[in-house]
């Protein structure tokens, strides 16, 4: 009898939805929220691997250190440059390809798609490895460039600080542009043909059509692409870790790489956590605020 009433309350009440969500919420709580809070608390102590007792209270020392530290400033700058360069390149290259692709017959895109999705599935650490071989002084890139008379002195690739960051950005373009192409192609196909018809009747040129119709219609698509791939560029770790490891001379060090090195090489867990929190703040400032605003706007509609 008791069993029955329980079943009844499951059927009617709001207990069932909560019960269904419980495992997900517990995992997110244990693996994401609690560690984040614990990590934030950790920034006010001096935690390392060596000290076995409770870590000493440090106040704001680690935070002050972050703003005084020259390497951290460099890491912030590199991360922002990487993020902007990578995202801008992905979007521009992806837009060009997608625009071409939708103009061509269906058969072309059905051949094109399986080929172009390959880089997306490759592990970023393997991407780093692949590009390490491409940038090798005796590798394929310098052989091709050599045909045009460009030597390693003209474009030093990952060996010199001047071009190392650009080289990592190129590797990232290789991997992520296909994602933009695929998402944008789907977005472009969802724009009703009548809009273009109307533009043609009004005598709008290709340029005007793109900026007045295509871009505004794709607003949401671009927003999602920015949020998905943009946030990933702020967190960039794997490609740089495998390609340059942050060098030469810290020229490609990103916040994630710096944080990782501080934590697991230098054993400064607390300072590493400060760097991580700042990475999160940065990603929220650049991509989180547009995301939230976009969400509020779409909720109103």
């Amino acid at each position: 009898m008791k069993h029955r009433t329980f079943e009844l309350s499951l059927e009617r009440g709001d207990l069932l939805p909560l019960l269904l969500m419980m495992p997900t919420l517990i995992i997110i709580l244990c693996i994401m929220i609690v560690p984040l809070i614990y990590g934030f608390v950790l920034t006010f102590f001096n935690a390392g691997f060596g000290n076995s007792g409770s870590p000493a209270f440090a106040g704001f020392d680690n935070w002050v250190r972050f703003f005084k530290d020259e390497t951290s400033r460099k890491a912030v700058l590199n991360t922002v440059c990487f993020s902007l360069g990578a995202t801008a390149g992905d979007l521009v290259l992806g837009t060009i390809c997608a625009l071409l692709l939708v103009k061509l017959p269906r058969i072309v895109s059905s051949i094109f798609r399986p080929i172009v999705t390959m880089p997306l599935l490759v592990s970023p650490v393997v991407v780093g490895l692949i590009w390490r071989y491409i940038y090798d002084p005796r590798g394929i890139l310098y052989w091709i460039l050599g045909q045009f008379g460009i030597t390693i002195e003209d474009f030093p690739g990952v060996t010199m600080p001047s071009t190392a960051l650009l080289s990592t950005i190129i590797a990232h373009w290789w991997q992520v542009t296909p994602f933009v192409v695929i998402v944008l192609t789907a977005g472009l196909l969802s724009i009703p043909d009548e809009y273009y018809e109307a533009a043609r009747i009004d005598g709008a040129g290709a340029f005007n059509t793109f900026f007045r119709i295509t871009l505004p219609q794709l607003r949401n698509v671009y927003m999602t692409v920015l949020i998905i791939s943009g946030v990933d560029t702020i967190k960039i770790f794997d490609i740089i870790y495998a390609l340059t490891g942050g060098g030469p001379n810290n020229s490609t060090i990103s916040l994630s790489i710096y944080g990782y090195n501080q934590a697991f090489v230098q054993s400064n867990l607390s300072y590493a956590m400060v760097i991580s929190v700042m990475t999160m703040v940065l990603s929220f400032l650049i991509f989180g605020i547009p995301f939230v605003r976009n969400n509020i706007a779409s909720n109103k509609r």
Partner: peptide
């Protein structure tokens, strides 16, 4: 929004825990 959390920010406390 969970996607905004960088892995490194989770890794350090998770490693200790």
């Amino acid at each position: 929004l969970g996607k905004m959390v960088p892995s490194i920010a989770l890794l350090i406390p998770l490693f200790i825990m």
